[in-house]
Design a protein around this nucleic acid. Structure first.
Length: 465
RNA sequence: GGCGUCGUGGCCAAGUGGUAAGGCAAGGGUCUGCAAAACCCUGAUUCACGGGUUCAAAUCCCGUCGACGCCUCCA
């Protein structure tokens, strides 16, 4: 039985879908105006693992991830660069798409964009105005009226009277209540805009997700996700809009990932402490990024430091060790060892599911997999042949695959590989003649090339890294 | 100030009532010409601190201290 922590109820609840075996999941994507950073990667990876696990559990998942391609920051950036805002955002969408692919994130079912949802957004706002949940102000903006929404604040646990928003009203705004938020913003001169019943303008930030949700998944969905910095005001406002519009409960489960932290602080563009996905992937593998995320609870802050990255890299190497083949000269294992391995496989399978069923406890699932690594390696050390390892390795690959790990070996060019093989041949000749100094020289040379070698009784093996 | 999450060995981290998973790092050992890898062994009498409930608490309750997030754009 899968249980999920629901931000809305602050409880871990049994997961029940609206329709049998179908999951409708909407995850807030990014605002595309700059390079995405590893914090964005964390969020994408968290929901990728959730999606993979749901599919592993037999659900069909419709996974929608939106792009915010119309927004103040995009407009500012574009005007700085003298570029069309939608051209700019489209370029970053292309880059982010590639980065997600590099991170082995499964493609979503669809990727709606604000700029392509305009008629529905306007229709949505009109509906809210008709229901008197929203009002057009004198300045051409349209605001959502918070006071008419009796359960406003239920997601973030806030009460209207506790929110000190009075000081935040900017000059020029024409709100009835300080906490009212914009559904439609009147265009400033020269700004990109769309025609609407309230004049030229563009949508506010929150309405887009309500509208795209409705367009892609319907009035009610199973899972709505995003970073926990979106709980208020973004998701709170989404609930307010959608439920006012449809009159039905919106999302059954609200799932929020914790923030990635650099030196004890949240990584964010406004703080300027950014490590971009691009930078990360130029130094370390996608598996390492994923391992960092899998190592802890998705809801907790993620410590992103040299030390944790190094440990994650070692963890990935350790997992890979389970996939190494048995020795060609292996004699085979005794029945007791074979039975031990078989039971290790069984407990890995059940332990993995048990951990993951508990609110996607990936750290617990990983611990189970490390136990399986040990069992496989022990069997190999005790003389298991490839066919004796295979079924255990197959299960191991299946489960690491559910977490989205590739465990792929690094690759070099074929000419480099030829060079490496030549050096190893030379070294083995030196070793045969017990010329240890020469042989160690060659090993050092290979190390500098990024090659690690291992001498076994069946010969010398090597790998990049 | 308000709302929320959290504080577990050197580091990361699971466990949320039944007597502390796992990984990294460290030390010792097996193997090896030496390494590397793998394997074996060693480590929290204790879970921020102080009270309380219970036969039993890292886990529940109260208080204190501390960290982080949100309350303004944010994954």
């Amino acid at each position: 039985m899968l249980r999920i922590y629901n931000t809305l109820t602050r409880k871990t609840e049994e997961f029940q879908t609206l329709e049998p075996n179908q999951v409708k999941m909407y995850v807030c994507g990014v605002t595309v105006y700059d390079d995405a950073h590893v914090g964005h990667a964390m969020s994408a990876l968290v929901f990728d693992v959730i999606r993979r696990y749901l599919e592993h559990r037999g659900y069909t998942v419709r996974h929608v991830m939106n792009y915010t391609d119309v927004d103040d920051k995009i407009i500012n950036r574009a005007s700085q660069l003298g570029e069309d805002p939608l051209t700019l955002s489209q370029r970053y969408i292309g880059e982010y798409t590639n980065e997600l692919h590099s991170l082995n994130v499964l493609p979503a079912t669809s990727y709606p964009q604000v700029s392509k949802t305009m008629p529905l957004i306007i229709q949505f706002i009109q509906g809210l105005v008709q229901k008197e949940a929203a009002y057009a102000a004198s300045n051409g903006d349209v605001y959502f009226s918070i006071t008419g929404d009796k359960d406003y604040g239920k997601l973030s646990g806030r009460k209207l009277e506790e929110m000190q928003a009075g000081a935040r009203i900017e000059v020029g705004e024409a709100k009835d209540h300080p906490m009212d938020f914009a559904l439609w913003k009147a265009a400033k001169p020269g700004e990109i805009s769309w025609d609407s019943p309230w004049g030229k303008g563009r949508p506010g930030w929150h309405i887009e997700c309500s509208a795209m949700n409705l367009a892609e998944l319907g009035e009610q969905i199973d899972i709505h996700g995003g970073g926990n910095d979106l709980i208020f005001p973004h998701h709170e406002n989404e609930i307010a809009q959608t439920e006012s519009y449809t009159g039905k409960p919106f999302a059954r489960y609200w799932i929020h990932n914790g923030m990635l932290q650099l030196a004890g602080e949240k990584m964010s563009k406004s703080l300027g402490n950014i490590v971009s996905i691009k930078d990360f992937l130029s130094k370390r593998s996608a598996d390492v990024m994923r391992m960092l995320v899998l190592s802890g609870s998705y809801r907790a802050p993620l410590v992103f430091s040299e030390e944790t990255q190094e440990a994650a890299e070692k963890n990935v190497e350790r997992l890979k060790s389970a996939l190494r083949p048995g020795s060609p000269s292996a004699s085979g294992v005794i029945p007791e060892t074979a039975a031990y391995l078989a039971s290790a496989v069984d407990s890995a399978r059940s332990g993995f599911t048990e951990a993951m069923d508990n609110d996607f406890n990936t750290a617990g699932g990983l611990a189970v997999l490390f136990e399986l690594v040990k069992a496989i390696n022990t069997a190999r050390d005790n003389g298991a042949r490839n066919e004796q390892l295979k079924s255990a390795q197959d299960v191991f690959k299946e489960l690491t695959g559910v977490l989205g790990l590739t465990l792929a070996e690094k690759k070099g060019s074929s000419e480099k590989e030829a060079q490496v093989n030549a050096l190893i041949a030379e070294r083995n000749e030196a070793r045969r003649q017990k010329q240890w100094t020469r042989s160690d020289e060659i090993r050092d040379q290979l190390k500098e090339m990024g090659v690690t070698i291992e001498d076994t009784k069946d010969g010398t093996t090597w790998r990049w890294g």
